[in-house]
Amino acid sequence: MIDPLYLTAIILMATVTYLTRIGGYLFLRNRTLSPRLRTVMESAPGCVLITVIAPDFVSGRPADLLALFITLMAATRLPILPTVLVAIASAGVLRHVLGG
């Protein structure tokens, strides 16, 4: 039933995730990190997340671009759950109106 490729990938993902969770305790607990290193470590997730989706947003479809803009505005003001709702609603309505 379970595809060995998927299973292996999931186990590897789980392993690297656990390593990040115990790694700081094992290797860094008695050290002070430089602000620069801290910035780098804190900015990594945002960088990866945005790169995964960025190409989706240059699809050139006006409905999606407008929805993106509305979502960005919502995201700076609202918590994530309402943001997602705003996003779905705006994407749905705009696609319907402008055609997507």
Binding site: R38, T39, E42, S43, P45, G46, C47, L49, I50, T51, V52, I53, A54, D56, F57, D64, A67, L68, T71, L72, A75, T76, I80, T83, V84, A87, I88, A91, G92
Partner: peptide
């Protein structure tokens, strides 16, 4: 449409961090 938008929400969740905007924009 949910996944990209959810990601965008997650990214914005990091926005209070140091120098968020230029870094994410460059990415």
């Amino acid at each position: 449409v949910l996944l990209p938008i959810y990601f965008l929400g997650l990214v914005m969740g990091f926005r209070k961090r140091d120098r968020f905007l230029p870094i994410v924009a460059v990415s």
